[in-house]
Design a binder for these strands. Structure first.
Lengths: 145, 145
DNA sequence: ATTCATGCAAATCGTTTGCAACCCA
DNA sequence: TGGGTTGCAAACGATTTGCATGAAT
């Protein structure tokens, strides 16, 4: 995402473009694969923008979630974690979490349509998003045992 | 669950049976349907056991999760919430969360087997548990609009 | 008798907030 | 210029911990 695109998106929501916001977002693009906590994001952004305050990072992450560029992730470790929302992603992807080594892998396939249809029929509940985490053993840990 | 059953289970894990632990668990049985925060559990337990301290409630909930009687729930509201694990529940049930009124409903059907099989084939990841939350509109809110 | 559990208060720690200085539009 | 934004430090709030007392085995 270019500076200009970010600027336009911010303007749509009535926010201003700043170097800090740009620095946080750029850093997230450099760690596409990561599921970073606020502290980790703060430490990484400081490398290119040493004056940034941690409250700015907190505020920026809330803002990026609000404008739909980032989503919050909960891995039950007491930290809020964040990841970029990929383009063309309508539903959130799923996460595989290895109970042994902690590895996190993503599953882009959705495959919940049948379940969501059944929920509509039986519970009269109309699903429009979901959060799915699978816990188990990754390939490495399985072969190690 | 009887006092005796709890006592036995605690002994298996090397823990002692106490009135406080019993009071917290009994209280959860009286609110089978609830998804209570630690503070709410503390307030409710105080009605039958006024001397209990909140740190005992925190410690007891961790213990009940550890011995498999209770599971932690994350509803993104800044509180840890807890619910009893139902008998014969191998996988966790799913939660429906209404974006409009906040209602929480449970879905006992699993229906993730096909997806978990595909994950085993494509990601070589062996799933043994999952956490699934669906966000959307409940029946009441849908008819209100 | 020994070991573990409790209750209280203090400490911890991630996160939020008040505010003066600052910067984008 | 004017209002959103920042960085700092202080406040907050849920949770954890140290410790002396108390209860369970």
């Amino acid at each position: 995402m270019s500076d200009h695109e970010l600027k336009e998106l911010l303007k749509e929501y009535g926010y201003k473009f700043t170097e800090q916001r740009n620095a946080v977002l750029s850093m997230l693009f450099e760690h596409m694969d990561g599921h970073l906590s606020t502290e980790e994001i703060y430490e990484a952004v400081k490398k290119t923008y040493p004056e940034i305050g941690i409250s700015t990072v907190y505020r920026t992450l809330l803002l990026l979630v609000r404008i739909g560029l980032v989503s919050k992730l909960d891995l039950d470790d007491g930290f809020n974690r964040y990841e970029l929302v990929k383009q063309n992603e309508d539903h959130r992807h799923h996460h595989l979490i290895c109970n042994q080594c902690g590895m996190i892998q993503e599953v882009q396939e959705d495959l919940l349509n049948a379940l969501e249809e059944q929920i509509l029929l039986k519970n009269k509940f109309l699903v429009n998003d979901h959060r799915v985490k699978f816990y188990g053993l990754c390939e490495n840990c399985r072969s190690r045992n």
